[in-house]
Design a protein around this nucleic acid. Structure first.
Length: 498
RNA sequence: GCCCCUGUCGUCUAGCCUGGUCUAGGACAUCGCCCUUUCAAGGCGGCAACACGGGUUCAAAUCCCGUCGGGGGCGCCA
């Protein structure tokens, strides 16, 4: 028997791709509940038919799973308190609505949206409180019935107190209190018969026995309304915890113009799910010990909802990238190659069908190039060092290296010597350069720099002890675009020079 | 306009509840040095913050008040 039966939920509406802000909310819920060994519920809030789409719902589930979250009850796996989609729960809500109407705790409102909008604007411009006037509150039930029967469509509102204070304890912010005269009668059911968000959540959370509601700060001012609804329904409200918002660099809500915001986008760029997971957990929370590179199990152990920051946090792409590098490093070589493959196949560096020989080579190549790479999507560009060798496209800096006094001689000698060797590898390279060094007296930069350029047509890149074996072995394997070996490269370079 | 939340290095934060141990700690970024046949990685080091103004106190980042800044909300959106 569990001492406390903690149940939390993540309740997104399928109106767009999963945003990192929402992902963080989901993650904090997950961390909290996994630590407490409770139940995580996924519920889809699709009461707004105009904006919801099935396509988004699938994407949402996929993104959540990719991030590494799992749930114990949800629309895709069912559970004892289903259905887990609000659009499938319409008849449930109406039972409660009937009850509230009968008890006189809710009433029909026939004001039109246009009328309400006008009133709101007038109130705002004259400095008054822009809340519902309560005009229909005093309509008798008989009058309401009459108008309904006459074909008028009405929304249903909750009758709320006109004065007093309502306060509740927020798990991250402490005691919060609100002046009830500033809270108008909220719409429970829209005139199209669909429940409004604030109403549906209350009923669903109660029926699904949710004990802790962990959500964004933008819901703080909804909370009094929801507690009032609980009271009308005679149910006890859950505990609340409101998380701060995620901002962009300019301290406005994180949006597309700041960079990637959708989980799927980070996935596409080659951010590891464990890195995004790790980063999101660090956004507004810090582990007590100081070590920040953490995996899920560590995070579950260390997480503490009450230690979550109350102020908003700016999303830092640099730190995400750093964490990504840290997590990439921890991956076994084969895994890195497998993740890298799609990115390289897409740019036609690697073939559709990979032999074991390809994989082995790729493992080595990826191991070399991944150093200092932020995301897997940056890899094709790095591989160009191997696959694109064109002396005619060299940049200014590279050409200058070739114009140094040592360059022509070193390359010429090298071509001569390499033509005599059976098998070229790094030790051979070392031997040849040693000979050139002795013959010409050139050493260090003046010796190696021209050779680097001769091999790569670039002034920087991999270290040659890594580059040479990779190219030599790669040249023996078939690729969509063949890999030239070193001998060929140097002679092409010499040709170009003359 | 009104209400609510929030304010420690450029950024994420530790410390704040339970004043002194804070000449404010860590991480990212940045800068410098080392390593190195370039770059990166790695190692070492530097720069850098208690929003402001009043109180309370022997003593305030920590407690109180005010100001200012930032965010959110005031929907038949969620």
């Amino acid at each position: 028997m569990l001492m406390e039966n903690i149940r939390v939920r993540f309740a997104p509406s399928p109106t767009g791709y999963l945003h990192v802000g929402n992902a963080r909310t989901a993650l904090f819920n997950w961390l909290f509940v996994r630590k407490k060994k409770g139940i995580f519920v996924l519920r889809v809030e699709d009461t707004d038919i105009e904006r919801s789409a099935a396509e988004y719902e699938h994407q949402l589930i996929e993104d959540l799973r990719w991030l590494g979250l799992d749930w114990d009850e949800g629309p895709d796996i069912g559970g004892p308190f289903g259905p887990y989609k609000q659009s499938l729960r319409m008849d449930i809500y109406s039972v409660y609505t009937q009850k509230l109407l009968e008890e006189g705790k809710a009433y029909y409102c026939f004001c039109t949206p246009e009328q309400l909008k006008k009133e709101r604007e007038e109130a705002l411009s004259s400095g008054k409180i822009p809340i519902y006037s309560g005009r229909c509150r005093f309509l008798s039930p008989e009058e309401a019935m009459r108008r309904l029967e006459a074909g008028e469509r009405g929304a249903i509102r909750l009758k709320t107190p006109d004065s007093g204070t309502l306060s509740f304890n927020d798990l991250v912010r402490g005691n919060l209190s609100f002046d009830l005269k500033l809270t108008g009668d909220p719409i429970l059911v829209r005139s199209n018969g669909r429940p409004a968000y604030n109403y549906a959540v209350v009923i669903d959370d109660s029926l699904m026995q949710i004990t802790h509601v962990i959500r964004g700060e933008d819901h703080i001012s909804n909370t009094p309304r929801q507690i009032l609804t609980c009271e009308a329904l005679s149910i006890s409200p859950p505990q609340f915890a409101h998380l701060s918002m995620v901002m962009g660099k300019d301290n406005t809500r994180l949006s597309k113009r700041h960079g990637a915001t959708a989980v799927a986008q980070f996935k596409r760029e080659g951010i590891l799910p464990e890195a995004l997971f790790n980063y999101l957990a660090l956004l507004g929370w810090a582990p007590p010990e100081g070590e920040e590179v953490l995996i899920k199990d560590d995070l579950i152990k260390l997480f503490d909802l009450e230690k979550v920051s109350r102020s908003s946090a700016i999303f830092d792409y640099d730190k995400l990238h750093w964490l990504n590098r840290q997590h990439i490093k921890r991956l076994p070589p084969r895994k890195k190659a497998e993740i890298a493959y799609p990115y390289l196949k897409k740019t036609e560096i690697l073939p559709e069908v990979m032999t074991e020989e390809h994989w082995k080579w790729l493992e080595r190549a990826v191991e070399c190039f991944l150093e200092g790479v932020d995301r897997f999507a940056d890899l094709p560009e790095k591989f160009a060092l191997l696959f694109d060798f064109s002396p005619s496209d060299m940049d200014k800096e590279t050409r200058e290296i070739l114009q140094s006094e040592s360059a022509a001689l070193v390359i010429k000698l090298f071509v001569k010597k390499i033509s005599k060797v059976e098998k070229f590898d790094y030790p051979t390279f070392a031997a040849i350069t040693q000979e050139i060094k002795e013959e010409t007296g050139y050493k260090g930069k003046s010796l190696y720099h021209p050779l680097r350029v001769a091999f790569t047509a670039r002034s920087s890149g991999l270290e040659l002890d890594k580059f040479i074996p990779l190219v030599e072995d790669g040249a023996k394997i078939s690729f969509p675009k063949p890999l030239k070996d070193c001998a060929q490269r140097v002679s092409e370079m010499l040709e170009f020079l003359q």
